[in-house]
Computed example of a mutant assay.
Amino acid sequence: MSSYATPPGGLPPQTQLTTNRARFTQAYAVLPRGTMTDIVTSALPHWDGTRLWVVARPLTGFAETFSQYVVEVAPGGGSDRPELDPRAEAVLLVVTGTVTLGLAGTDGGTTEHELGQGGYAYLPPDAPWTLRNGGAEVATFHWVRKAYEAVDGIEVPEAFVTHESQVEAVEMPGTEGAWRTQRFVDPADVRHDMHVNIVTFEPGGAIPFPETHVMEHGLYVLEGKAVYLLNEDWVEVEAGDFLWLRAFCPQACYAGGPGRFRYLLYKDVNRHARLW
């Protein structure tokens, strides 16, 4: 079973140096795990026993298509009205504890799904859902949100629930398994306008060229460490860090070990570029 990083919370001692790896540039941002303290948490309307770290939100002139939260729900906490924007689709990935996700069916009933570590859910726009922590331990999950871009003649995708263990990790060509991606949605399914995948590198695995593309990224490191190329800078990253990459930001990485390097990756896909 994997052990996934979560925000440390708390507050550093007064003796700690202020120097760290935090960066915010015109092309990318790096939020090291140490920046996710108690003093930067937020609350949400209609959520009980819950706090969250907002690690990405749309900013004009920077990343513009998504928001991402790391949500911590205490025992007994949760929400019966979690999403207030009917345009918003979402992906949830549970990293600690267990939550109960309620999905409304077309028959008016509700189906409940128990999601533990590695549990994954896609929630389409305007789909009623609830989330509760009925366990005895704090539960933590990633919540990626995007305003769904509807297309005439294309159906909105349906909700689904799965687990990362049920999704095959497909190796990238020529890597002999050193670089693998778990794709939770078929890339050819144009109903979906975002992909949220888990990418894994074995020690020594690498992206051996600077990827430069129109998709913007949110990248939360779940396990391990690596050196990541962001625009013109090589930056060390580790479990619990979050990276935010603007469209066309050159990127590559090298996973030096000693263990595997894994991250949750968001990207926008399958839609025309907007013409303002």
Rank of each mutant, 00 (worst) to 15 (best):
Met1Glu: 10
Thr6Pro: 00
Leu11Pro: 04
Pro13Ser: 14
Thr15Cys: 09
Leu17Asn: 14
Thr18Tyr: 14
Arg21Phe: 14
Arg23His: 09
Arg23Thr: 03
Phe24Val: 09
Gly34Phe: 12
Val40Arg: 04
Thr41Tyr: 07
Ser42His: 12
Leu44Thr: 03
Leu44Asn: 02
Trp47Gly: 02
Arg51Phe: 09
Leu52Trp: 02
Trp53Asn: 04
Trp53Arg: 04
Val55Arg: 00
Ala56Phe: 04
Gly61Asn: 00
Glu64Asn: 12
Glu64Tyr: 12
Gln68Thr: 10
Val71Lys: 08
Val73Asn: 00
Pro75Phe: 11
Gly78Met: 11
Ser79Ala: 14
Ser79Ile: 06
Arg81Tyr: 14
Pro82Met: 15
Pro82Trp: 13
Arg87His: 11
Leu92Gln: 13
Leu92Met: 14
Val95Arg: 08
Thr96Ser: 08
Thr98Val: 13
Thr98Gln: 10
Thr100His: 04
Leu101Met: 06
Leu101Phe: 07
Leu101Val: 03
Leu101Ala: 09
Gly105Asp: 14
Gly108Asp: 11
Gly109Thr: 10
Thr110Lys: 15
Thr111Ser: 08
Glu114Gln: 08
Glu114Leu: 13
Gly119His: 12
Tyr122Trp: 10
Tyr122Lys: 02
Ala127Thr: 11
Gly135Trp: 13
Ala136Trp: 15
Ala136Ser: 09
Ala136Ile: 15
Ala139Pro: 01
Phe141Lys: 04
His142Asp: 00
Tyr148Glu: 10
Glu149Val: 13
Ile154Trp: 02
Val156Ile: 12
Glu158Gln: 05
Phe160Asp: 03
His163Pro: 07
Glu164Ala: 01
Val167Ile: 12
Ala169Gly: 08
Met172Gln: 05
Gly174Trp: 09
Gly177Asp: 03
Ala178Cys: 02
Trp179Pro: 07
Trp179Glu: 08
Val185Asn: 02
Ala188Trp: 13
Val190Gln: 07
Val190Trp: 05
Arg191Trp: 01
Asp193Ile: 10
Thr200Ser: 15
Thr200Lys: 11
Phe201Gln: 02
Gly205Phe: 03
Phe209Leu: 09
Phe209Met: 03
Pro210Thr: 04
Thr212Glu: 14
Thr212Met: 09
Val214Lys: 13
Gly218Ala: 11
Gly218Asp: 02
Lys225Cys: 08
Ala226Met: 10
Leu230Asp: 05
Leu230His: 05
Trp234Asp: 12
Glu238Gly: 15
Phe242Trp: 11
Leu243Gln: 09
Gln251Gly: 03
Cys253Asn: 11
Cys253Val: 06
Gly256Ile: 06
Gly257Gln: 00
Pro258Val: 01
Pro258Lys: 00
Arg260Met: 05
Arg262Met: 14
Tyr263Met: 12
Lys267Pro: 01
Asn270Lys: 09
